[in-house]
Simulated scan of single mutants.
Amino acid sequence: MFTVADRKRVRDLLLARARADEAVVGAAYTGSLATGNEDRWSDTDLVLSVRGDDVTETLERWSRWFYAELDARHHWDLSAPPAVIRVFLLPGWLELDVTFTPEANFGPRGPQWQTLFGRTRPIQPFAPPDANTLIGLLWHHALHARVCIQRERWWQAQHWIGEMRAHVVELACARLGHPTSHAKGAHLLPDELTARLEATLVTELTAPELNRALAEALSLVTAELRQSAPELATRLGPMLEELLEGQS
């Protein structure tokens, strides 16, 4: 694995290149590095402000440099129009998430931002997860888990139960004001809740075990709804209980 010294060396190279590139008019750190919360394992999140409206030429030129000078092994993209987030893997499992954004879109969307140079613009913050959508996904996944158990599709059933667990984490984190994406706030949840989440883990692909895990997940969903959306808990609770009837 990479060392802290490896990570610092690459960051220094990135910033030196950004300052020397006439097409790059700003740079900022995001993520844990921007707030002083990084640890020995943190990756690097860098935003580059690109002159003009089109980042394509700069994006591809920088990508060639990553492979030629930093020995990148792979990359993939997250689309975030008008920006592109290109995620690079370097030797030693050093991950670099580099956002290339037009200069008019260069600015913080939340508190995890540290401007290194360049002019920032006021940008709309990221919208929080929609609770109604999360609740819809929960009953959808619960139904499909139940059906998959009946069809003896064990792997698919455990998939849906796992998705239920992930959305309960997201809904609870949103309610408590913790980070919601990728379970980043899960470690901040109360012990009582995480203990119930643990009970939803599937330990073997058998009908009895899947039924047990689904029952735990349904109970947890109902409990979370009572806190996040009491009216929906009253409306959906009896229907969720119906999914436990006739388990085989």
Rank of each mutant, 00 (worst) to 15 (best):
R7W: 12
V10A: 00
A16V: 07
A16L: 09
A16S: 05
R17F: 01
A20Q: 05
D21K: 08
D21H: 11
A28V: 14
A28T: 14
A28M: 12
S32F: 04
A34D: 09
R40P: 02
R40L: 13
W41T: 13
D43T: 07
V47Y: 12
V50K: 03
E57M: 11
T58E: 11
L59G: 15
L59E: 15
E60R: 08
E60W: 12
S63V: 10
S63F: 10
R64N: 10
W65C: 11
F66W: 11
A72P: 00
R73I: 11
H75M: 00
D77S: 08
A80M: 15
A80H: 14
P82C: 01
P82D: 03
R86I: 04
P91D: 13
E95S: 10
D97V: 12
D97N: 13
A104F: 13
G107T: 01
R109F: 06
W113C: 05
W113G: 03
Q114I: 02
G118Q: 10
I123W: 03
P125F: 01
N132K: 02
L143A: 08
A145I: 11
V147D: 01
V147C: 01
I149E: 00
Q156K: 12
H159K: 08
H167E: 11
V168D: 07
C173Y: 00
C173S: 02
A174E: 15
R175Y: 11
L176S: 09
L176E: 13
A183G: 03
L188E: 08
L189D: 04
D191K: 09
L193I: 01
T194K: 05
T194C: 11
T194S: 09
L197N: 03
V202P: 02
T203I: 09
T203A: 13
E204V: 14
E204M: 13
A207P: 13
N211M: 07
E216D: 12
E216V: 02
L220N: 15
V221C: 02
V221F: 01
A223I: 12
A223W: 09
L225K: 05
A229D: 13
P230Y: 05
E231V: 12
R235Q: 07
L236I: 08
P238V: 08
P238A: 09
E241L: 07
E242C: 04
L243K: 04
Q247T: 02
S248T: 06
